[in-house]
Design a protein around this nucleic acid. Structure first.
Lengths: 335, 335
DNA sequence: TCTATTTATGCTCACTTGAAGCATAAATAA
DNA sequence: TTATTTATGCTTCAAGTGAGCATAAATAGA
């Protein structure tokens, strides 16, 4: 018997996962911790029932507990341990998704509780060093190299992923399934003239997973050389959560001014553009970008001028805090 | 001591809330159950600490338990009890939000577990009668009369809500707060030439809540005459969940073809338009709507023709199932 | 039967938005 | 000095959107 709830139907424990994003030197970074198999076992969900190879290479998202007696809300629980661990004030928090899949916690089989994880996206203001030594800021394209189109088409796509996907399409014996695979590949990976859609990060990852092209999907210990071949693998389903976060953020910046949560107090328009490009993984037309930003009225010139830009000095801008109120205030959509 | 988890930090129970939507006779409907105070106490979260008046008028969203030992995933748990209770196959399910606020379950104070509710939006295919006699399909504008702009501007807005909000703005003594209130009211309620944004359902409800203009926000037993004045009140924070669902759905139909989950297998373009209008609460330009739909290639003519339309017979269409795969396939955005 | 009314459907037009590029200004680097 | 880099203003062409005109084909009613 326990304190409350439906004991005969099993118990539940809640955990909080955070994708903590910052822009450091114009690159998109996520806070990553190194987990040992033991710490992982206690905490996370898997995308499948298969266990990951225990080879000590577990890069994982930070994970925190939810203490019902201490935290008034899920979000305040998240904020408290994230701010504690990162020394950053969190500007923006958004709930991503709640995972309740069976079979993530091995202790479940021994009658342990079901682990339900609520995942969050958090944006922090740049880069005071973190309090935890085990945590590192990693470029998020480390995990999704095919998502970075800032310098031309990612090489890995042409040389490896697209051919592998085409082969996966062809290996199906059922014509309807081939058709289905082909269409989904078109949409997500922009095959055959379909335009690339930067928001489909999760859909692309899931397609690769289904096609057995990422390490997490393999049920054998992978060849060490292969492990990081198509992006660095992560513990359990953390790469999936990260993909959710990136896709959500890419969509969000197009219609909400969340971008400023990642900016320093004052910046030039090119700096702003670089951050948008870092997140969306694509290049933007400079003149049109500034026209857009100025039209929206999201920023105002400080009157100051920044030299050492490598060229003509640029006006500095600041974000107009007022528009934060305007919940629907437009973002920086450019296409 | 209990079976697992962090007992010293309190326990947690998970519940599942569903906003089940169907279109019945071209009106947007949600499945509503009548709750007694007792059934409510055991289950839901409140927006504040204040209790609702116990006057037997509790219209509530269907609620179901999550059994970790029975349900592989949260979603399958939801599907199983919803399909059981409604006799409908659910075409589409989307997780909305997870609420973990303190103070919803009165038993918490007596050492009971924290109640965490995961809420879902479910779309069902029309209208076989439901299995539960206590459940009724209600027009969703019953709860948000100000959201229905299909026949001109809602009368309640001009006559009551806008004046009340203006007064609320003025009653603030702090000028900055007045400014803030004014701007938020402009954005959400389209004051002073700001255009009405159909997706801000939740933001509008929360503004009314903050301004003490909805029954749920009042901490006294309301005048019976007043209860349904600004839309029918719901139990606890269910009206808030419903607002989340409506806003999410209104946004979704603009870029994903979820609308077809609500349509019969075959339909005319006007029928499709009426459904979009019912959801978005606005009128659309007929010729432009059909141009849009035909351009997207989401539908195909069946070749058949429907008479008794009250005018010239119309071609019947069906949804092209193929495009369901195309996750990014465009929806029916018209503005 | 004739006519008003209703719905279906094709098409035009003005206007807005978006993508791309030209051109000039004002710094730094060599 | 000159090439290079960045900043910034402006134009042009194409595509998309909103609004309305016009015609077709049914029903409802006198």
């Amino acid at each position: 018997m326990n304190a409350g709830g439906a004991p005969e139907n099993g118990q539940v424990v809640i955990g909080l996962n955070a994708v903590i994003v910052a822009i450091i030197e114009e690159q998109p970074k996520v806070l990553i911790v190194q987990h040992t198999p033991e710490t992982l076992n206690a905490q996370h969900e898997t995308l499948t029932d298969r266990a990951l190879p225990h080879d000590d290479r577990h890069e994982a998202l930070p994970f925190g507990p939810f203490y019902p007696l201490k935290h008034r809300t899920l979000e305040s629980g998240l904020r408290s341990w994230v701010e504690e661990q990162t020394n950053h004030e969190i500007g923006y928090v958004e709930q991503l998704y709640t995972f309740g899949n069976e079979g993530r916690d091995p202790r479940e089989e021994a009658g342990g509780p079901r682990l339900v994880s609520v995942s969050y996206l958090a944006l922090v203001q740049d880069t005071a060093p973190t309090a935890i030594e085990t945590a590192i800021w990693h470029d998020w394209y480390r995990y999704f190299p095919w998502e970075d189109w800032r310098e031309d088409t990612p090489a890995l796509l042409e040389s490896d992923i697209i051919p592998a996907l085409r082969q996966w399409i062809e290996t199906s014996s059922d014509p309807a399934q081939r058709q289905d695979r082909y269409e989904r590949t078109c949409i997500t990976f922009g095959l055959d003239d379909t335009p690339w859609n930067d928001e489909l990060v999760l859909e692309r990852y899931e397609l690769l997973y289904e096609a057995n092209l990422v390490t997490e999907a393999q049920d054998h210990i992978p060849d060490p050389v292969q492990i990081d071949f198509r992006g660095t693998a992560m513990a359990l389903d953390h790469r999936r959560i990260l993909a959710t976060a990136i896709g959500r953020l890419r969509g969000k910046i197009k219609y909400r001014p969340v971008i400023f949560e990642l900016m320093p107090p004052t910046f030039t328009l090119l700096q702003l553009q670089k951050v948008v490009e870092a997140l969306s993984g694509s290049r933007l037309h400079k003149q049109n970008f500034r026209r857009l930003i100025e039209k929206k009225g999201l920023v105002e010139a400080t009157g100051k001028i920044k030299s050492q830009t490598g060229g003509r000095p640029a006006s500095q801008f600041r974000f107009r805090r007022e528009v934060l109120m305007e919940k629907q205030a437009l973002g920086v959509r450019q296409n």
